Amino acid sequence: MLIGCHLSSSQGFLAMGTTALSIGANVFQFFTRNPRGGAAKPFDARDAAALVDLMRENGFGPILAHAPYTLNPCAADEGLRQYARDVMADDLWRMDHFPGAMYNFHPGSHVKQGTERGIELIVEHLNAILRPDLKTVVLLETMAGKGSEVGRNFEELRAIIDRVELSDKVGVCLDTCHVHDGGYDIVNRLDWVLEQFDKVIGLDRLRAIHLNDSKNPLASHKDRHEVIGAGFIGLEALVRVVNHPALKALPFYLETPNELPGYAAEIALMKSRSV
């Protein structure tokens, strides 16, 4: 089973890998820079290479970088859209130093422009930054549907993918809290939800899972993560997620409200329930 959690990138690449090993993880996610915005630290190629060696020696799955929350590729303001393009282009250059890496981002909020205009702008954004020699797969994250978020259902994500010129560089990260809060009943109808995903997007596009419980009931459109087993999704439903034949080979990344000891406990728990 490939499972890990979100780690702080402030400690450096190799240190993140060492931390992951210390809590029983064999994958991990990190923010490329401050999640609330700002410049990234200078890239340390030697530190990156040391992490690659550590991952190879210890059988790690793919690392997942997460774009800052402040990025909005479909903002109404052109300056904000340019900022998103610049940051993501720089982040993808960095991530190409890690074999098999993935880069996850929230599609954005259309801020009263309408969903269709939001989708158009996200497509423009991706067409501007994706390049044929890119090694990193860019993942659109499923969203809970709060406010004017784009990506609140599978159809909106498919509409983006269909218009991206280099769509082979694009995949999807399914967040269990988000889809639950968005109205997809993964507790009682997991098979049906995955059938819908396959019908609309295609399971071959699904590359990663954010494994989270939810503080809110089904279809609340709230996006509030909870520790495993303490929310409205519950432990047994999440065990079914990690063991589902269509999902079990994917990497799982915890984003639960935890410190390292809590993550270690959740990783051990989910591994103990993996079949």
Rank of each mutant, 00 (worst) to 15 (best):
Leu2Asn: 15
Gly4Ala: 04
Gly4Ser: 09
His6Val: 15
Ser8Cys: 04
Ser8Asn: 10
Ser9His: 02
Gly12Cys: 10
Phe13Tyr: 15
Ala15Tyr: 05
Ala15Arg: 15
Ala15Ile: 09
Thr19Pro: 05
Thr19Gln: 14
Ser22Glu: 04
Asn26Pro: 08
Gln29Asn: 14
Arg33Ala: 04
Asn34Ser: 10
Asn34Lys: 09
Pro35Asn: 13
Arg36Trp: 07
Gly38Ser: 02
Gly38Thr: 02
Ala40Asp: 12
Lys41Tyr: 02
Phe43Glu: 06
Asp44Gly: 07
Ala45Met: 03
Leu51Ile: 10
Leu54Asp: 07
Met55Tyr: 03
Asn72Phe: 15
Pro73Trp: 01
Glu78Asp: 05
Glu78Thr: 01
Gln82Trp: 00
Ala84Arg: 07
Ala84Glu: 11
Arg85Met: 05
Asp90Leu: 03
Trp93Gly: 11
Met95Gly: 09
Asp96Phe: 12
Pro99His: 11
Phe105Leu: 11
His106Phe: 10
Ser109Met: 07
His110Gln: 02
His110Tyr: 05
Lys112Val: 06
Gly114Trp: 03
Glu116Gln: 14
Gly118Met: 01
Ile122His: 02
His125Tyr: 15
His125Asn: 15
His125Ser: 15
Leu126Pro: 08
Leu126Trp: 02
Leu126Asn: 09
Ile129Asn: 09
Thr136Ala: 07
Val138Asp: 12
Leu139Arg: 11
Glu141Pro: 07
Met143Val: 10
Ser148Glu: 15
Glu156Ile: 06
Leu157Arg: 00
Ile160Lys: 01
Val164Glu: 07
Glu165Ile: 08
Leu166His: 05
Lys169Gln: 04
Cys173Glu: 09
His178Ala: 10
Tyr184Glu: 03
Val193Glu: 05
Phe197Thr: 12
Asp198Glu: 10
Asp198Ile: 08
Asp204Ser: 13
Arg207Phe: 14
Leu211Asp: 15
Asn212Val: 03
Asn216His: 13
Pro217Ser: 13
Leu218Val: 11
Lys222Met: 11
Glu226Lys: 04
Glu226Leu: 08
Val227Leu: 01
Gly231Cys: 09
Gly234His: 08
Gly234Pro: 10
Gly234Met: 06
Val239Cys: 01
Val239Ser: 02
Arg240Trp: 04
Val241Gly: 08
Val242Ala: 02
Val242Gly: 00
Ala246Pro: 02
Leu247Cys: 12
Lys248Glu: 10
Tyr253Arg: 06
Leu254Phe: 06
Pro261Ser: 09
Tyr263Gly: 03
Ala265Leu: 10
Ser272Met: 07
